[in-house]
C-alpha cells in the first residue's frame, strides 16, 4: 500500500513575460489501487502538475509538499523519484536516436530494480507485454521513439508502465492523438498493469472518452491551477454533457496560460 500525497503545491515557470504561477495550491492524495482522473481545460495546469511531481527542471516549486509513503519527493532527483516508484507517461515522449528500445527498457528495469532482470523471464515478459499492446516485435530494435507514430509512442509509454511496475503512475493525456482502436488497446494495457501491480493511477485528460475504458474512482476538475471541484465518476458524466464552461468565468482570459503547460 503506497500513498502519494500532494499538499498545497504552488509552482511557477519562467516565461518571456517573467515568472508565472501555474499551480496555485493543489492538494491531492492518491493511494495504491485508486484511479484518479484530473480533467480540465487546456492551460489549466494539469500537465504542470504531472511534470512537477516527476521533477522536470523547468518548473519551480515555490511552496507545498509532495511525499510518497512519507518520503519527501521534492528532495529527490528525477531518477530517484522514478526509482522510488513514480512513473510519468508523457504526452509527448522524447526521441532518443540510436538507443534501441530493448537496451533502453533493460537499462531502465535494471535501474528501477537495482539489479539486472533475469534474462529469460525478461525476454518473455517483454514479448508478452508487446504482444498484449499489439506492438510490432521489430520495435524493440528501433531507436527509442525514433520515427514512431503517435499511437506507437503511447503504447511504448504503457509498455514501460507494465514492465517497470511503478507504485504510482501519472498518465499525462495518454489518450491524446489516439484513434478508437489504439485508445482501447492502450487503456487495456493500463488496466492490466494496474491490476497486476495494484498501482495508483493519476489520469490526466482533457476528454472523457478514455474514462469509458479506464474507470476512475475519483474525478477532480482542474481550473486555473487549482482543483475547482471533486467527485466520483458521475462528475465526469456531467462534464461530458456540459463541458467546462461553467468553471470558466468570462473574465478569465485563456491566453494567460500556455497551452498544456
Amino acid at each position: 500500500m503506497s500513498t502519494l500525497e500532494i499538499k498545497d503545491l504552488h509552482v511557477t515557470v519562467e516565461t518571456e513575460q517573467g515568472t508565472k504561477e501555474i499551480l496555485r495550491g493543489v492538494t491531492l492524495t492518491i493511494n495504491s489501487g485508486e484511479t484518479h482522473a484530473i480533467m480540465g481545460p487546456n492551460g489549466s495546469g494539469k500537465s504542470t502538475l504531472a511534470y512537477s511531481v516527476a521533477g522536470h527542471p523547468k518548473y519551480t516549486i515555490t511552496s507545498g509538499t509532495v511525499t510518497l509513503d512519507g518520503e519527501d519527493v521534492l528532495a529527490m532527483s528525477v531518477d530517484e523519484r522514478a526509482r522510488a516508484g513514480l512513473f510519468l507517461a508523457m504526452q509527448y515522449p522524447v526521441e532518443v536516436p540510436g538507443v534501441t528500445v530493448s537496451n533502453f527498457l533493460r537499462t531502465a528495469k535494471t535501474a528501477i530494480d537495482g539489479e539486472a532482470p533475469k534474462l529469460r523471464t525478461w525476454v518473455k515478459d517483454l514479448k508478452q507485454s508487446m504482444n498484449d499492446l499489439k506492438m510490432d516485435p521489430t520495435v524493440s530494435e528501433r531507436g527509442v521513439n525514433e520515427g514512431f507514430s503517435g499511437g506507437e509512442k503511447k503504447r511504448h509509454e504503457i509498455l514501460q508502465m507494465e514492465l517497470l511496475k511503478p507504485k504510482i503512475a501519472i498518465l499525462d493525456e495518454t489518450d491524446s492523438g489516439l484513434d478508437v482502436d489504439a485508445l482501447r488497446i492502450v487503456s487495456e494495457g493500463v488496466n492490466r498493469a494496474k491490476e497486476s501491480t495494484g498501482a495508483g493511477v493519476l489520469l490526466i485528460t482533457h476528454y472523457t472518452r478514455i474514462l469509458r475504458y479506464i474507470k476512475p474512482d475519483f474525478v477532480h476538475v482542474f481550473v486555473d491551477g487549482r482543483i475547482a471541484e471533486e467527485g466520483g465518476p458521475e462528475l465526469a458524466d456531467r462534464l461530458e454533457a456540459e463541458g467546462y464552461d461553467r468553471f470558466q468565468p468570462v473574465a478569465t482570459p485563456e491566453a494567460t496560460t500556455p497551452a498544456n503547460a
Binding site: R83, F104, A108, I112
Partner: peptide, 9 residues
Amino acid sequence: FYLQARGID
C-alpha cells in the same frame, strides 16, 4: 529528463 524519469541516473 526522459531517461531519468525512467530511473536511469
